[in-house]
Each structure stands twice: as structure tokens, then as C-alpha cells.
């Protein structure tokens, strides 16, 4: 069953069976492997992408529900080699260890920064509670988001 969507500004048409997840389309059909598969049930946020302005877990979002939607993945954050402020902050603050959760955190935090006027540490932590990290203990991820939120 065909569906068309725009991913990171690029139109795409794929033909997958109903019940296929958006994550499978991104990784297996479109080769966008930056978005990660971890828990397969919306518990960890590693597959967070933005669909029509809403951050969601692509591992439990039906691909055909995203027909005609605009999708933003980690690959669409930077403009070419030009990192976003948040990506740069992640690099600087030590927010990345193994990095497997990083794409999900970046997409989620990008959304938080775009939709909130200002963010307290508590709000950042709440907003990122749906993203699990097993390496960092979160402090340096929170640091990076706060640094950008403050316009540092």
C-alpha cells in the first residue's frame, strides 16, 4: 500500500504493507538509519521524530498514518555540515556517550526548545522523561538543552 510523505524536506513515496511502522519506513525503505530502534513499544524515545509538528515514537506510529505528512528526523536537523546550536551544545557539553539515544534526545529537545518560551531544568527533565539514556545519567544532556534555552 503506497504512501507519500516528506522527510526532512525531501518528498518520498514508498510501498509497504499496512501495519508497517513509520520507523521501519525511515530505516529500511528510506535508509535513514539515524533514527534508532530500541524498545519497540514507545518506552524509550530513541525513535522520536516530528510528524506535522508533533514529536512521537516512530516505532509505534503506523507509517500510513503519516501519509502526506511532514517528517523531521535527526538527519534533517543540521543544514549540511552546519550543526544546529543544540547539536553543537551536545558536542561541547559531553551529552553524547554511546550516542544511540542521541538522535531521539536531539529531536525531542529541539521540539521543546521550539515550543517553550523558556525552560527550567525541571521542565527540561520532564520534557525528556520519555527518552531513556543508559550511559550519561542525563546531567550533561540537560546542560546542553539549558545552554541553548538560555541562548548561551
Amino acid at each position: 500500500m503506497e504512501l507519500s510523505l516528506t522527510v526532512n524536506g525531501q518528498p518520498a513515496v514508498v510501498d509497504v504493507p499496512p501495519g508497517t511502522t513509520l520507523l521501519e519506513v525511515l530505516r529500511d525503505e528510506l535508509g535513514l538509519t539515524g533514527t534508532k530502534e530500541v524498545c519497540d513499544e514507545g518506552e524509550c524515545g530513541a525513535c522520536t521524530v516530528i510528524v506535522d509538528g508533533r514529536p512521537l515514537d516512530a516505532c509505534i506510529y503506523a507509517a500510513h498514518a503519516a501519509d502526506r505528512a511532514e517528517v523531521l528526523t535527526v538527519e534533517g536537523l543540521a543544514a549540511g555540515d552546519e550543526l544546529t546550536d543544540l547539536q553543537r551544545a551536545f558536542v561541547e557539553a559531553g551529552s553524547v556517550q554511546c550516542g544511540f539515544c542521541t538522535p531521539g534526545f536531539l529531536v525531542m529537545a529541539t521540539h521543546l526548545l521550539e515550543t517553550a518560551a523558556e525552560l527550567s531544568e525541571e521542565q527540561v527533565r520532564r520534557g525528556l522523561a520519555g527518552n531513556l539514556c543508559r550511559c550519561t545519567g542525563y546531567a550533561q544532556i540537560v546542560d546542553a538543552v539549558l545552554a541553548v534555552g538560555r541562548g548561551a
Binding site: 514507545g42 524515545g45 522520536t48 514529536p55 512521537l56 515514537d57 521543546l112 525528556l128 520519555g130
Partner: peptide, 9 residues
Amino acid sequence: VGGHQTQAV
């Protein structure tokens, strides 16, 4: 209910 990603949809 869940995290932000679940609440959003």
C-alpha cells in the same frame, strides 16, 4: 500518561 511523545498523539 507516558512521556511527551505519548501525550502528543
